[in-house]
């Protein structure tokens, strides 16, 4: 967090003090760059919120931060035992699944809140029909309700293993009563694209203010060059890789022959 932007929110924060409920964002990070050394990154989100100062902390409202990554289509497969071999059998296609989903609040929010505002992905209990509005699902040969439930839970569980789906309620730090900040861990497995950050100020179980912005994850340098080259000119890329293999093979044969003669 740089000092300049922090002092800017400070100013905005004090200018807003007279008005009722407000939410100000100070985060200015709008790019995460993937280079050869990329091993994940913490995204800093900070800002100020203002509720009724006469109320105790618990009643001043909650902050909810939602980060939604670019959509992807995935196939989820279930393994079954065939004569002792564990092989993939039934599969379900989920379309437009967020590649990254992070939900963080200052205190644990009620399920009814998520349900009413259609926020959330990690709470299967809120979706009795297993029909999260943003995901299109091709159930294939899976028909029973229980099995669908099982697949849905497995989707979230498997995504959580990779730390790309997460829900937490104790990672936002409150400073000075009305300033908040949190670090959102972006693992090195995330795909490139545009990520939406939605912030909500919640009062009495209702959204009082909201604010959205986005940041981009993109490759830079040699990583980006190689990736684009491989996808735009696959044949040339293949030949280049072969040529490199050929040259190294040739040089090594020659080098070691001389080395052994010496």
């Amino acid at each position: 967090m740089n000092l300049k932007s922090f002092s800017i929110i400070g100013l905005i924060y004090f200018s807003l003090i007279s008005t009722s409920n407000s939410l100000v964002i100070g985060s200015d990070e709008n790019e995460i760059l993937i280079d050869a050394n990329f091993s994940g990154k913490d995204l800093l989100v900070f800002g100020a919120f203002y509720a009724d100062p006469s109320q105790p902390r618990e009643k001043k409202g909650d902050i909810l931060i939602e980060v939604v990554g670019p959509k992807e289509d995935i196939v989820l497969r279930k393994k079954e035992s065939f004569f002792g071999f564990w092989l993939n059998s039934k599969s379900v296609k989920f379309k437009d699944v967020p590649s990254f989903y992070y939900l963080s609040s200052t205190s644990e929010l009620k399920d009814s809140f998520f349900e009413e505002n259609s926020i959330g992905l990690l709470e299967t209990s809120q979706f009795p029909e297993l029909n999260w509005s943003l995901i299109t699902t091709d159930w294939g040969s899976v028909s029973s309700y229980d099995e669908k439930q099982e697949f849905f839970e497995a989707l979230i569980r498997n995504k959580s293993y990779e730390n790309v789906f997460k829900k937490t309620s104790d990672e936002i730090e409150i400073l000075d009563g009305n300033l908040f900040k949190t670090n959102i861990p972006i693992p090195n497995t995330v795909p490139v694209g545009v990520y939406d950050v939605n912030l909500y100020l919640i009062l009495n179980n209702e959204i009082s203010k909201d604010y959205s912005y986005n940041f981009t994850v993109r490759r830079i340098g040699i990583e980006s060059l190689i990736y684009n080259f491989a996808n735009s000119f696959p044949l040339t890329y293949g030949f280049t890789s072969l040529l490199i293999a050929l040259i190294i093979g040739w040089i090594s044969a020659d080098l070691f022959r001389r080395f052994r003669k010496a």
Binding site: I226, A230, S241, L242, I244, A245
Partner: peptide, 29 residues
Amino acid sequence: VTLLHATTTFALDAVLAVILIISSVIGAQ
């Protein structure tokens, strides 16, 4: 096979290949 994979499965990783080639060539000698 390398060319076919580069053009059909897009799965050839040149960075990984170079690291493996150099280290394996030395190891082989």
